[in-house]
C-alpha cells in the first residue's frame, strides 16, 4: 500500500503527512510537484502549507503543476485523493471539488485545536470513524472559509457530501460550518483542519487524526 505525498514549493506539512501514513501502516512515497510520474502509488495526499507562496490565489498555481495533471486524471478514475488545508484549496482550484476557500471572515490567521464532527463516514478517507463522531485536531489557516453558490451548497447537503463540520464555533465563516467535503464518488476528500498533526498525544491534541489514514488503508485492502 503506497500513498504518495506531494511536495510543492512552499508545502509545509509533507513530513507530518508522510509520518502519519507510515504510522498508520502504509508506505509514504514522496512525490515532487514537477514529477511526471505518480510512482505507482495507490492514493495521493496533498498536504498543507503555502504552495507557490499562495500567490494569485491559494492553490491556483499548484493546480497547473505537472504532477497535478496525473492526479486529476487518476482521481477521475477513482484513485483516492486527500487534500488537507492548502491541499483542499488545490483540489478546489483543480475543480476536483466544488466551491472555494476564501479569507477567514475575521481576517486573522487561525491556529488552534478545533473540534469537528464527522458527518460522512462512507468516503475512502473516513470509514474508520463513526458517523457523528467528534474529534479534536489542529486548525491552522488564513483562507479556510468554505464558499460556494446556493445550488452547490444544496447539492452537497442533499447528497451527504459534507464530511466534517466545525463544532461549537464557526472559526472562519465557512458556509454551513463546513470543514470538509467529498466529490460525488467519495474518493476525493478536502479537509481544512489537519489530521496529520494529531496522530500522537505527545505532539498533538489527540491521536484522533490517525483515522483518516487508517481509513484509506482499509479502503485499499478491501
Amino acid at each position: 500500500m503506497r500513498i504518495g505525498v506531494i511536495t510543492f514549493p512552499g508545502t509545509l506539512d509533507d513530513r507530518d503527512a508522510a509520518r502519519a501514513v507510515n504510522v498508520s501502516g502504509a508506505e509514504a512515497v514522496a512525490l515532487w510537484h514537477a514529477d511526471a510520474d505518480l510512482k505507482k502509488v495507490d492514493a495521493v495526499i496533498l498536504p498543507g502549507g503555502f504552495s507557490y507562496g499562495d500567490y494569485l490565489r491559494c492553490g491556483a498555481i499548484s493546480r497547473f503543476a505537472p504532477v497535478m495533471k496525473l492526479v486529476i486524471d487518476a482521481a477521475g478514475k477513482g484513485m483516492p485523493v486527500l487534500g488537507i488545508c492548502n491541499g483542499f484549496q488545490v483540489l478546489c482550484e483543480s475543480h476536483l471539488l466544488p466551491g472555494a476557500l476564501t479569507r477567514n471572515s475575521d481576517l486573522h490567521f487561525l491556529c488552534r485545536d478545533q473540534e469537528i464532527e464527522i458527518t460522512n463516514n462512507a468516503t475512502a478517507w473516513t470509514t474508520s470513524f463513526a458517523k457523528g463522531e467528534r474529534i479534536t485536531i489542529p486548525l491552522k489557516n488564513g483562507e479556510g472559509s468554505f464558499q460556494c453558490d446556493d445550488q452547490t451548497l444544496a447539492t452537497l447537503e442533499s447528497e451527504g457530501r459534507v464530511i466534517a463540520r466545525y463544532v461549537g464555533v464557526n472559526p472562519n465563516g465557512s458556509r454551513n460550518l463546513i470543514a470538509g467535503i467529498t466529490n460525488e464518488r467519495g474518493n476525493v476528500v478536502g479537509l481544512m483542519p489537519h489530521p496529520e498533526h494529531a496522530i500522537d498525544p505527545l505532539t498533538g491534541p489527540s491521536a484522533q487524526g490517525l483515522g483518516f489514514f487508517t481509513s484509506i488503508l482499509k479502503a485499499m485492502v478491501k
Binding site: 476564501t102 479569507r103 477567514n104 471572515s105 475575521d106 481576517l107 472559509s145 464558499q147 453558490d149 465563516g173
Partner: peptide, 14 residues
Amino acid sequence: MLKPEILDPQGNAV
C-alpha cells in the same frame, strides 16, 4: 472582482 454574493472580509476591513 469577487462576485457580489461572496463575503469580502478585506473590503469590509477597509
